[in-house]
Design a protein around this nucleic acid. Structure first.
Lengths: 253, 253
DNA sequence: GGCGCTCCTTGATCTGAATCAAGCGGCCGG
DNA sequence: CCGGCCGCTTGATTCAGATCAAGGAGCGCC
């Protein structure tokens, strides 16, 4: 059993307990928000935190609900989305281990969040977290950096949704997803043949890219036909010509 | 001459001077970032600030350039945009008095910014501003609030770009623009007959809404035909049936 | 091991918005 | 006051992607 998986089981076993004694074991201890803090600071903060487990498919944050909590993801993936009254949906992001939920909030949540598989969360009362800011300015600074980075990502996605073709959107997604999964040498392009897991469904991809499932599927098939990717299983691509994909993603003429 | 216009002239006259003595007279003194600070704090901060004037049409922030400055808008409007290599453009936002430029930045600017008319800016060295954070935590907290709010706005816009029809996009824009221009009773709908100035061109609107100028024009004409708006001059609409517009904007079936 | 989901792919057709094209009108400079 | 230009509107046509439709493949469950 690999070490990471071992640590994950431990986290699952202590679910619902107080997190104070367990931050040291958390998958997210050295990522995201938590990485900004010293061990002393985090054990202080942990007194206000709770571990919870969320079953696959469960919507654990509902748009419009009063925003009582911040969440930090300890294990699993989450889809964050907004909906229109007639059921149209847009996924604003896929969030993974160490990522933070509950920033873009004013009183009520501005988004819904759903567990893609089973998910472990570390939950903080918003009020408690705000009280902690005074003690640990590093945390507030860290959150500003996170918010700032998310804003950049959001603006990139607006360019994608407003002005890119279907192929460009799918290529862009593959590149940012590869980067997110640390398959890229810092800021560069993944190596040819890089294997990339796609834990989300085609519906998720469509709702994230502003397309339909058929168009996503066709775009991927076209890339396969053109030798840019290989696609043996629906949830795994091989990036055969990553540089070409990066060029398409960037909208090179 | 109305008082606001008078104060604006004063600001123009002191352009390029040190801002220290002039924050008190600034249009933006009680909005956005500056509103978070006491008079003492702001005069401290102002030592590192410079007033500059930018001519209409001038691109004063270029995507990819090293991000040396933060800006606060003292007068005028700015279009913030991103471009693809073949010239496709997406406007991420229209920024006005008191608004803040330079948040979503990591080393280099992630966007370009262009003056829509003549613009007055208050400019801070990023480094200087960061040094000031230690002294005035209120400023950092304020910036986190601003970033958080911008993130909400960006996510709303992603829903618009990914899933709304042309009519819904235009209606959404009219509603948010009315709110921005304080024509709405807090969070509500503007009153019927409300006059709304549109300082931007149809190209701007198209690039902001992910449409073409023809489609923007047709959508507005359709709303006029249906009695939802009146449109005597191209740059001013009357909101005849604001509630109906709000429903369309929200995607009511 | 087979039944029946659910998810994915592929094909045929349709359509909302883009593109191509032609005026119109307000406004600035002469 | 006139001419030309730029930005806007409107009409005709095209097209990228949506919708409609029909299997196929993987997989959990019995």
């Amino acid at each position: 059993m690999p070490e990471a998986a071992l640590r994950r089981s431990v986290a699952i076993n202590v679910a619902h307990g107080n997190a104070a004694a367990h931050c040291a074991d958390c998958e997210a201890r050295h990522i995201g928000m938590c990485d900004a803090l010293t061990d002393d600071e985090i054990s202080f903060l942990a007194r206000t935190a709770q571990r919870t487990t969320v079953a696959a498919g469960k919507v654990f944050i509902e748009e419009q609900e009063p925003a009582a909590y911040f969440y930090n993801i300890s294990a699993g993936n989450v889809r964050v989305f907004k909906s229109l009254p007639d059921g149209r949906r847009h996924i604003t992001g896929f969030m993974g281990v160490g990522q933070f939920l509950g920033l873009d909030v004013a009183g009520s949540y501005a988004f819904s969040a759903e567990a893609m598989g089973e998910v472990q969360l570390c939950r903080f009362h918003r009020k408690a977290l705000h009280e902690v800011f005074g003690e640990f300015p590093a945390l507030e600074r860290r959150l500003l950096n996170i918010a700032t980075h998310e804003l950049t990502v959001a603006h990139d996605q607006m360019l994608l949704l407003g002005r890119k073709t279907a192929q460009e959107r799918v290529a862009s997604f593959l590149m940012t997803w590869a980067e997110r999964n640390e398959h890229c040498p810092a800021g560069g392009v993944p190596k040819p043949g890089q294997k990339l897991p796609l834990p989300m469904t085609r519906i998720d991809l469509a709702d994230y890219l502003g397309l339909t499932i058929e168009t996503v599927s066709r775009s991927l098939s076209a890339m396969k036909r053109d030798g840019l990717i290989a696609l043996d299983h629906a949830h795994e691509v091989l990036l055969l010509k990553p540089q070409r994909l990066a060029d398409i993603a960037a909208g090179e003429a």
